[in-house]
Design a protein around this nucleic acid. Structure first.
Lengths: 262, 262
DNA sequence: TTGAAAGCGCTAACAA
DNA sequence: TTGTTAGCGCTTTCAA
């Protein structure tokens, strides 16, 4: 019952064939006789054999591990959890498995998990980077030739494929929407002030106001402090207001929040 | 720049030492001279060497992969996301990496990801099982000797360590609390009717009512339909009420919800 | 259609 | 303290 490792050799012996025949069966090769395949498969089941991917990858010339890594900055944020689940569905249906890790916004932790994933031979990486990640942090990774796609947050100067939401255009739409409802004092809640996302949103917000002939006011710009505490400067009677239609989907990038007073 | 695999042999050659010396350095063995270690490490950095854990595990007698798998039934549920993150913290601080997968309540998917994890040589598994998981689904796994701990949901008859909340006792407390506030018509919302959790909660609910001299009424028992839709039977003016103090922590099992009317 | 043999990158005796 | 040698479990030519 307990774990004496069963290998291809064991099942070859039990089935009365050679190692390589077993290997072919394992890979679903059409070159092996139907009877042989059936017998081998039966033995595999009987002996409780489990395929050793590590050994296979080792030998395989092109080292296809069939595992793709995904590291997210904050899994407790349901946006990222849904992202991970969405990716997982695709990854799995492609016959890969997902190696998911959470960095909790720690760049150091991120380096560790990425290193670990590399050691385990991931064949690709999807990265939603921790706040403060810089291009240099990814240099060795991209140099190694493993495909990486960066999502959600832009990394200035990094030579990787990126999938990012257009925060500036989103703010344009949001502000226009509120203005269309007759609001004139439109406040801005853009998240953490030290992020590129924040800057993009703020730019879009200001541009949109100006385009509408309104004057941006600094007192209506509210940001979160880097430590996660909201730097809330109480202002005159703000009321909240959704910026538009909301959908729940990991494939949709979240729209920035906007508040307004009539 | 692109991926010509650098091996211990390459770094041995470049450092003017043998394979095994490199291996010792890699493992932080104290048996190697300080200068040698320094030179080897320098070469490792220069050549951009990445350790091949697959090869190492293959050779190692006790096959310690340093990866532990965690499979959860619904990662979009923030309870499980926080669970995963909490586990991850511990796993990582123990020098392991986490292989996280989501089953989305599919028993089939669960079998697949567990199989995949086994093939990748996980050294342990934490499982928050999909609804409908039975003891037989885990038989091969536990027979293989890899340690598995089952969490959140009980699996009847499964021979695995389990970490489960005491739903019955929780309901006792919740009902007693509401009764203590003077409520007499206490309703029950216990989640999916086809789960063991539901049964435990319902049992606790009824026991507590009876112990208080109240009569359980079926019309006050509300369950969710298996497909995720709430089977809501509108009843006479129910109002909601927290069942007690709430803490946010992955290490805490969620208390059942309770509603009541005075 | 199947078998024999070599070797993937690494570690573990055993020598030196 | 370091080098030599022999595999771990698998895939892959190359023959049969």
């Amino acid at each position: 019952m307990s774990g004496e490792r069963v290998t291809v050799i064991d099942i070859a012996r039990a089935a009365g064939v050679s190692k390589s025949t077993v290997s072919l069966v394992l890979q679903g090769s059409p070159l092996v006789h139907e009877e042989t395949r059936a017998k081998v498969n039966a033995v595999i089941r009987d002996l409780g054999y489990v395929y050793n991917r590590g050994a296979a990858n080792l030998r395989q010339s092109n080292s296809k591990s069939k595992i793709i890594g995904i590291v997210v900055n904050d899994l407790t944020n349901s946006f990222f959890a849904e992202l991970a689940v969405g990716v997982d569905v695709v990854v799995q249906s492609a016959g890969y498995v997902q190696f998911l890790s959470n960095t909790g916004e720690s760049v150091d932790r991120q380096s560790e998990v990425i290193a670990s994933m590399r050691e385990h031979g991931i064949s690709g990486l999807i990265l939603s980077p921790a706040r403060g990640t810089e291009a240099v942090d990814l240099k060795a990774l991209v140099a190694s030739g493993i495909p990486v796609v960066n999502v959600v947050r832009q990394i200035a100067g990094a030579k990787v494929s990126s999938l990012i939401s257009d925060n500036r255009a989103g703010m344009h739409e949001a502000v226009r929407h509120l203005a269309g409802l007759g609001h004139r004092r439109i406040a801005f809640l853009g998240g953490f002030a030290d992020t590129a996302v924040f800057a993009d949103r703020l730019t879009g917000y200001r541009e949109a106001l100006v385009a509408l002939g309104l004057t941006p006011q600094d007192e209506l710009v509210i940001s979160s402090a880097p430590r996660g505490r909201v730097a809330w400067r109480p202002s005159s009677g703000l009321c909240c207001c959704a910026s538009g239609r909301r959908r729940r989907s990991a494939s949709m990038m979240r729209s920035p929040s906007v508040s307004a007073t009539g």
